[in-house]
Design a protein around this nucleic acid. Structure first.
Lengths: 173, 173
DNA sequence: GAGATATGTCAATAAGGCTGACGTAACGGA
DNA sequence: TCCGTTACGTCAGCCTTATTGACATATCTC
């Protein structure tokens, strides 16, 4: 431990005992910590938590989303989802309609109230993003998007790409 | 809602009703989702959760960290911290030593076992980062670091910069 | 010596996640 | 038409991680 300047190993491609990328690991932690804390005050005003935010966000972004797709996005169990989803429906932020081709499905749609809250929740996050772009430039934002995308599980990248960039209404109504 | 191609507003600087940056919002969510799931399997082998991981990580990175500093990093209450910290100490992953200048402080140090586990936990995350760099290049990684850093609360950036880049042993021993 | 600080602890509670088991309705193919 | 599968809901119990509030102890600082 003492004696910090040990011999520098010859920089090989993917050397086995290279220092982990603690900078990425930690900046991701700190950025996410502050990022998700933005909407918290608004959420507590409605008696909601971060779980409600995530559900409302994706339903708002993908009107007509099915339960199964939402479970796949959030990576939680249907029991966990159901509790928060039920509250969002009861309080009038999300509507369920039976699927048209497959009536077993419950397609999820935001109500006007739901869209409004989703927008309000995204606002402080968007402001944070805009301040960051002001600091470090649009090129860094685009590079960050590429990097974050590459950090996603390979099997899931196509799915995420469709969700993020191919968004919009898809089913029902 | 219907009639998707409404008039495109003239692109002003910070126009008030511009579309929020859903791409950043969502890619941050998905990248973080997969990123934190990496160490989960290892953690359950030890009976630990993600809270233990966070504590062990920062103690390992900043040997001699105080409780107060750790609370400030994690943004949780001392009661929450204490439970997981106690378990890490009892199981021999972290050691406490009284501060030298201020004996009220309990300085936290990783044991050899703690350093080893911290390294094991960082490995899958580091591999994910390396794969991402292979995909999109070192320049994008550096841009992503700048962008993530700019996403942190302004008041906290100096502190985080010291933590991330000015790391190393600081106190005691 | 007195007040402030750093930390520990007890107790109660809440949010958000899990597993397991079971029920219902609808789809889809033999 | 029957039957297995799928999509979803629900009941019950449990765990982890967080919270608030109150109080205790040791130490620092003035």
């Amino acid at each position: 431990m003492s004696g910090a300047l040990a011999e520098a190993p010859p920089a090989a491609a993917t050397e086995p005992d290279a220092e982990p990328h603690f900078d990425v690991i930690e900046l991701l932690f700190f950025a996410y910590r502050d990022f998700v804390s933005d909407p918290d005050r608004i959420l507590t005003d409605y008696g909601f938590g971060r779980a409600h935010h995530r559900v409302l966000h994706f339903v708002n972004r993908q009107p007509g989303l099915t339960i199964a797709e939402l479970l796949d996005i959030l990576r939680i169990t249907k029991q966990s989802l159901n509790r928060v989803l039920k509250e969002l429906v009861e309080k009038g932020f999300i509507e369920q309609r039976p699927g048209v081709q497959d009536r077993r499905q419950r397609l999820l749609f935001p109500t006007a109230k739901g869209r409004s809250l989703a927008l309000a929740l995204s606002r402080p996050q968007d402001e944070r993003i805009r301040r960051a772009i002001n600091r470090c430039g649009e090129e860094d934002r685009q590079a960050a998007l590429r990097f974050l995308f590459a950090m996603i599980d390979e099997n899931d990248r196509d799915h995420v790409a469709r969700l993020v960039y191919g968004a919009g209404e898809r089913k029902g109504q």
